[in-house]
Write a protein that binds this DNA or RNA. Structure first.
Length: 424
RNA sequence: GGAGAGAUGGCGGAGUGGCUUAACGCGCCGGUCUUGAAAACCGGAUCCCGCGCAAGCGGGACGGGGGUUCGAAUCCCUCUCUCUCCGCCA
């Protein structure tokens, strides 16, 4: 949510920023409501001040045993006008909040202007893309031969897009999760949390998924709860409606399943594990001092990259352009792994600084060193998403005989296993 | 699911219609004293909104919302959450 004061004081700057995103927004309607709201408040406060003084007087007169019925009748009328004005203010504020919640964040000055994904910029590449002197298989072929998953049986119980990992596949997934959690907690200084997977509408609104993205999420109507599409939601909401007293930054890491309806994504790279309705992810979340949040973003990207580097997988870092960034982000980097079987890049992480956009929605504040209460900056990034990491690992590690060599750092998590071999 | 109790500042905890401008204690910050610290003493502290160039002035907030009243932390209704007991349960 944007600051109404910023919109009021710099409407042209706000218009220009929103222009570079896909959604052009009517700022004039918000400003008109703001005008009406302030007028009603000023008038209401004036009346309340008068009423307070008279009420105080009535108390004194009554104590002195005097008749106050005339003056009371007069104040009663005043009370009715106050109640009407209060109702006006409430209605205006509801409408204003409704409009503000639908306005996306402003892009940071360093974000390239662009229409869509073609406007994204490659910042750097790391590692050598693997080449094989045999025909490379994709992860579906490899995984089926190795007995890592069973899409047919999973589809029978849940429909397409709900993977069933089996035997060594399930164990490899668990090893990767534990490896990532250990890396972030011991090497990067994050504190591990295990949050709820179902959250309230208020929590979803706090991080910006609602009201816009209701169609993309699973809803449990009986209890009015939502399945999280990312741990970002639960972890960021840990401090909702709080003034943080601990020193910043606060760095948290969580492993959770993620649930996404992927409405409208039918036909798009839906084979195998590339795009699924349920997947596991290790998520990094930071609550940062606004003065240093962009340095924290670079560090966060580095922490996610470290996962890929430690596993020895080639990747590239993209900076998203204004038109391709998600609703709440002010600046965003994507990490993409090279997948030799698909001959393409796979997004495994998205690292964003939301500045105060989420904090304002969720009312997450702190006491800055000057003693002022202000909104924190929130950041998060995948560190990283599991299924596509698994895809890249299989496709990069494949051998001519169909086996897959596993990275050394994973072997302690697999009882020393160094290679997956096809079922006989 | 049933019955009961409760929700007050960073924490504990008073407060049953009008000097409450939320007592008191702990903790916190500043000051005095001290070589330094502790103790003692003095002082200060919340958040939101509006008006104002500013100093400042005003309004609102005692879990959320609504009501009664000239006036509500206090009375009424309602919702949420917490705790205790019972039932069920991995």
């Amino acid at each position: 949510m944007l600051d109404i004061k910023l919109i009021r004081e710099s409407p042209d700057l706000v218009r220009a920023g929103l222009q570079t995103r896909r959604a052009p927004v009517d700022i004039a309607a918000v400003l008109a409501l703001d005008e009406r709201r302030r007028a009603a408040i000023t008038e209401g406060d004036r009346l309340k001040n008068a009423r307070n003084e008279i009420s105080r007087k009535i108390g004194l007169l009554k104590k002195a045993g005097e008749d106050t019925s005339g003056i009371q009748r007069q104040t009663r009328e005043m009370g009715e006008r106050i109640a009407a004005l209060d109702a006006d203010v409430r209605a205006i504020e509801d409408e204003q909040r409704r409009l503000l919640l639908a306005i996306p964040n402003l892009p940071h000055a360093s974000v390239p202007v662009g229409e869509d994904a073609t406007g994204n910029v490659v910042i750097r590449e790391w590692g050598q893309k693997r080449h094989f002197d045999f025909p490379a298989k994709d992860h579906v072929a490899l995984g089926e031969a190795l007995g890592l998953f069973d899409f047919a049986r999973a589809a029978r119980m849940s429909g397409a897009g709900f993977p069933l990992l089996t035997g060594p596949g399930a164990r490899l997934a668990r090893a990767l999760i534990q490896f990532m959690l250990d890396l972030h907690t011991t090497r990067h200084g994050y504190t591990e949390v295990a949050p709820p997977f179902l959250v309230s509408t208020a929590a979803m609104t706090g991080t910006g998924q609602l009201p816009k993205l209701a169609e993309d999420m699973y809803h449990v109507p009986g209890d009015d709860l939502w399945l999280i599409p990312t741990a970002e939601v639960s972890v960021t909401n840990i401090y909702r409606e709080e003034i943080i007293r601990d020193p910043l930054p606060i760095k948290l890491v969580a492993h959770t399943p993620c649930f996404r309806r992927e409405a409208g994504a039918a036909g798009q790279a839906t084979r195998g594990l590339i795009r699924v309705h349920q997947f596991d992810k290790v998520e990094l979340v930071k609550f940062a001092d606004p003065a240093t949040s962009y340095a924290e973003l670079e560090a966060l990207v580095g922490d996610a990259e470290d996962v890929l580097q430690t596993l020895g997988l080639a990747y590239r870092v993209l900076q998203l352009c204004s038109g391709d960034m998600s609703f709440a982000a002010a600046k965003c980097y994507d990490l993409e792994l090279w997948a030799p079987g698909h001959q393409g890049w796979l997004e495994v992480s998205s690292c964003s600084n939301f500045e105060s956009f989420q904090a304002r929605r969720a009312e997450i504040r702190w006491k800055n060193p000057q003693g002022k209460t202000e909104f924190v900056h929130t950041l998060n990034g995948s560190g990283v998403a599991l299924p596509r990491l698994l895809v890249a690992l299989l496709e990069n590690g494949q051998q001519a005989d169909g086996s897959v060599v596993l990275p050394e750092v994973l072997r302690p998590y697999l009882g020393g296993l160094d290679r997956l071999t096809p079922k006989t």
